[in-house]
Write a protein that binds this DNA or RNA. Structure first.
Lengths: 348, 348
DNA sequence: CCGCACTCCTAAACCGGTGTAGTGACGAGT
DNA sequence: ACTCGTCACTACACCGGTTTAGGAGTGCGG
């Protein structure tokens, strides 16, 4: 373990080698005017020879931009691991951050209050240049916090939840409606929905949209259950929905994520119900998981990676204040039919 | 958007309010000797009243500890989203970091070379105080890098892969052997293994262990396939294993992660084979997913969250140099039998 | 009464950059 | 010949902490 004491090379060394002042090096590396091409070249050459790159810490302290973006996620660890959505989202965010040599500061928090504290501390301490806010609730305290702090953020959520914050969202209401329409078109008249955590804003939106759509299109019955997104909860919900005698039992179930749909599939099997003949199942998000079950899961499908990338891009325009940081939706999830949905009552 | 210009409160303000010098405040907040209890109290009171907390950036620049830990993950985004292991691991790491008010700098990289660059840049730029290294390969370039840099790290991987680095690992060889023994004890004589990415060190270890164990215990046949950990690859591998006519077909398959086992389950169903009657399936890691399938998946089970926590704890002792930063294994995965394994050939 | 050790605290020099005011040189305008 | 303006660059004060060397006050032995 010969821990060679890394020979720290600083801006001063580069300046000396290029025969200029620190200031000149700084100007060169920030692509600011006031330097001749010749000097600029000389500086870059010296830097390359010394293997120098500006120290982000010092740069931050000196008051310029911060090259770190914050993301605090507030969901129990158990659920996170299984929710493919997050990692896909993060990887989408990263893909854009990397282009700007920007890093992601990630924190798992246990409550919204803790997140509020973390975001405030990060911002006050100049740890981050901006933040991505996810999982909005009704009357979310982060809306106020952000305005009080002046923290540049992009809110992931429908504008009705995110106050005046710049937001990027998926149009869940339309997607839910499309899901219900599809099932109704197949002939289903008794439709259920296994929703996510009730306190999450997008859950309410989906719930309301389902109410409306199913009220009109599923005259024989519409049910909704709130869960915590976990597979176990999805299994429980499915079990209770399917134990009713046939006339009171839904013939189709929409899930709020893939995991619960997988769990639902397994419950159906365990109860001796065939999918899709006896009951149709529709997943949400459409991760790879949907193609790994038997039957494969029909799903409301969207590009989560691309969503993350778009959020990151928007955050950059918020941070740089480059005007075009408008709130906007990303493409609405589209229905991808697979093996788990069919007209009701079919015996193949 | 009334961006209130946050009133930055610095150490100077606290010092002024407490009637002492900046240095005194610094001493107090770092719990260093040289201050009377009275003064100390006065300082803390002033800080509390002003809502001040030391600025990490400045603190870092001034050469003291860095409260950020790096983690670069090198796997394609598609796979990451589905691999429950990572998020669970990260959440375990976080749980310990949080206790030390330390953050996680996360980066998804596309190659080992890129990771080497990222780690070097982070360390040279004092962005991190230490790093967690995962997914070791044979002759991993990070071993040298770390020693050259003097970067404090904990390597997640068997010592045979991680050179002299402090490492924490799961004893995969023993676990694989146990898995094979269990299947053999059930009566299986033709056993296959669907492994992960061949270039990963822990895959080789498992492969070798399987070779040895299955060579002895599965005289009628032992197969191994390398994949990329994705469900699709798992499905393909399973399909090709199961298409052989019965005498050349394995009666039990061990998978290197849960996703592939789920995929395998679906392939078996699609081919009309019953699990576990016609073929037994054994998953690895034992995320919630294993309890969401039908039949439920038997698995080699371990506490990934706890693993992450232990890695973080070890990293802290490496960073502080508090002697006891010894390499050590965490508990070996244990067999958790569920519905997907049974003696071969049983017709229920 | 002086020297000495010890405690408690301050001033000032850092850390590695950024921003700004200011300097010298050079060309143009009159 | 004397301004005036630009251009290219430097010197130096920051950012918000940490860390030293050292000073003022106190207690104690000789």
């Amino acid at each position: 373990m010969t821990a060679t004491p890394t020979p720290r090379v600083t801006i001063k060394d580069v300046a000396a080698r290029a025969g200029v002042s620190k200031g000149a090096v700084s100007l060169a590396f920030n692509h600011k005017p006031g330097l001749s091409e010749a000097t600029r070249d000389r500086i870059f050459r010296a830097a390359r020879e010394l293997g120098w790159a500006p120290n982000l810490t010092a740069r931050t302290l000196a008051g310029s931009r911060v090259d770190v973006v914050g993301l605090a996620v507030c969901r129990p660890a158990r659920m996170l691991g299984l929710e493919p959505w997050y990692m896909e989202f993060v990887s989408g965010v990263e893909s854009v951050l990397a282009e700007h040599s920007c890093s992601l500061l990630l924190r798992l928090v246990r409550s919204l209050d803790e997140e509020v504290g973390v975001q405030a501390a990060w911002w006050r301490g100049r740890q981050i240049g901006g933040s991505i806010l996810v999982d909005f609730r009704a009357d979310d305290p982060r809306v106020d916090l952000v305005e009080r702090l002046g923290l540049p953020v992009v809110a992931v959520g429908h504008p009705s939840l995110t106050g005046g914050l710049t937001s990027v969202w998926t149009d869940d209401a339309t997607a839910v409606t499309e899901a219900v329409r599809y099932l109704a078109a197949l002939g289903h008249r008794r439709i259920a929905r296994v929703g996510g955590a009730a306190d999450l804003g997008h859950t309410s939106i989906r719930t309301a949209a389902f109410d409306e759509a199913a009220g009109a299109l599923a005259p024989a019955g519409a049910w909704q259950v709130a869960t915590d997104f976990s597979g176990d909860a999805g299994a429980r919900a499915t079990r209770s929905l399917l134990t009713a005698a046939p006339p009171d039992r839904p013939t189709a179930i929409v899930y709020d994520n893939d995991i619960m749909a997988v769990a639902g599939l397994s419950v159906a099997a365990e109860m001796g119900l065939r999918v899709p003949q006896d009951v149709s199942l529709l997943a949400w998000d459409d991760s790879q998981l949907c193609r790994l079950t038997h039957p494969t899961l029909s799903a409301m499908s969207h590009d989560v990676h691309g969503f993350g990338a778009e959020v990151a891009r928007t955050l950059f325009s918020v941070i740089t204040g480059s005007g075009e940081a408008e709130s906007h939706p990303v493409p609405t999830p589209v229905l991808t039919p697979r093996g788990s949905t069919a007209p009701p009552g079919i015996r193949v």
